[in-house]
C-alpha cells in the first residue's frame, strides 16, 4: 500500500486552486569546469504547486541536478528567474532543505539526533527548546528512534539517507529538494525507501522536488514529471504520474507511460 494508490484523487486540483509555490521561468544555468564553461540547462520553465511531488527526469547531462542546485541557491541563473512563495531565490537557505545522493552528507562528528538538530539550531528556525523534540519526532517518523545516539558511520546506506530525510523534514522547509537520494542504494532498499517517502508524504503532504534518472522511480515517486533533454537540458514534456505507485508496476498504463518517456528520452535523440 502506498500514498499514491490510497488517495489518487487528493492531489488533482484545478490550476486555479493554488498559486504556484515555486516558479522557475526561462532559467539558463551555466557552470565552469577547469577548462570549459558548460551550459547545463537552457530556458527551462516549470511551476511546482503545494504538495506536488515534482520530478525532474532526464538522462545524465540534462542538467537536472544543476537545476536543483539552482533552486537550492548554490548557483545563480544567467538568464530567467526562480521564485519561491513569490520571493526571488537569492542564495542558499534553510527554507529549501536538500537531501543529497552521497551518504557523506551527514556530519560524521555528530550523532543521528545531533545531525537532525543541527540545522534547526544554526538556522534558528525553531526555538532551542523545541529543536530536540522536533528532531526526535522526525527521527521516529523515519523509524530510526533506536539509533538516535548512533554515529553515522555505524549506519547502513539506507539508514543514512533516512537520517538525511529526517533532518530535512524536521526543518519543515517550504520545499524539499532531493537529488537522486536513492540512487546509491541497492534495489530492494531503494524500493522500500520510495514507499516510505510516499508514506511520509501521505502523512504531512510536503512539497518535494525530486531529481532522478530512473523512469520507473519518476513514475512511482512523482505526481508530475518534467522530462528534460540532454546537453543542454531543455523541457521536453510535463506529464502526470499521480495515479501510479509501486502497485501499478507491470500494469499496462504504467508500462505505456514508461515506454512513452523512454521514447521521448532516447528514440528521438538521434535527430535532435
Amino acid at each position: 500500500m502506498n500514498a499514491a494508490t490510497m488517495h489518487p484523487k487528493d492531489q488533482t486540483y484545478p490550476p486555479s486552486y493554488a498559486s504556484p509555490l515555486l516558479e522557475v521561468s526561462g532559467v539558463t544555468l551555466q557552470y565552469k569546469t577547469r577548462d570549459l564553461l558548460v551550459t547545463a540547462t537552457r530556458d527551462v520553465s516549470f511551476e511546482v504547486y503545494p504538495a506536488d511531488r515534482f520530478v525532474l527526469l532526464g538522462p545524465s547531462g540534462c542538467g537536472k541536478s544543476t537545476l536543483l542546485k539552482g533552486v537550492a541557491g548554490f548557483l545563480k541563473p544567467v538568464a530567467g528567474f526562480m521564485r519561491l512563495n513569490g520571493q526571488m531565490i537569492d542564495g542558499a537557505g534553510p527554507d529549501r532543505m536538500m537531501v543529497f545522493q552521497d551518504f557523506d552528507q551527514l556530519m560524521p562528528w555528530k550523532t543521528v539526533l545531533e545531525n537532525v538538530m543541527f540545522p534547526i539550531l544554526v538556522s534558528r528556525r525553531f526555538p532551542r527548546a523545541e529543536a530536540r523534540a522536533r528532531a526526535m519526532a522526525s527521527i521516529t517518523k523515519v523509524k530510526l528512534g533506536k539509533f538516535a545516539d548512533a554515529y553515522p558511520h555505524m549506519l547502513s546506506g539506507g539508514m543514512k539517507q533516512r537520517v538525511a530525510i529526517a533532518r530535512a523534514m524536521a526543518m519543515e522547509p517550504a520545499i524539499l529538494l532531493m537529488d537522486e537520494p536513492f540512487a546509491a542504494l541497492d534495489a530492494l532498499t531503494r524500493r522500500q525507501m520510495q514507499d516510505e517517502l510516499l508514506q511520509l508524504w501521505d502523512d504531512t503532504r510536503f512539497t518535494v522536488l525530486f531529481v532522478t534518472h530512473s523512469i520507473e522511480e519518476a513514475i512511482v515517486v512523482g505526481s508530475r514529471i518534467l522530462v528534460l533533454s540532454p546537453h543542454p537540458g531543455q523541457v521536453k514534456a510535463e506529464l502526470n504520474a499521480h495515479q501510479y505507485g509501486h502497485d501499478h508496476q507491470g500494469g499496462s498504463d504504467f508500462m505505456a507511460l514508461s515506454q512513452k518517456i523512454n521514447t521521448m528520452l532516447f528514440a528521438e535523440g538521434h535527430h535532435g
Binding site: 542558499a92 536538500m98 543529497f100 556530519m107 540545522p119
Partner: peptide
C-alpha cells in the same frame, strides 16, 4: 572537505566564521 558537506553547510544558511568553525 567533500562538496556535499560544503553544500549541506551552506544549505543551513551557514556563512563565514560559523561555516569554518562548524563545518
Amino acid at each position: 572537505v567533500s562538496e556535499t558537506q560544503r553544500l549541506a553547510g551552506q544549505n543551513y544558511g551557514l556563512r563565514g566564521v560559523r561555516y569554518v568553525a562548524l563545518i
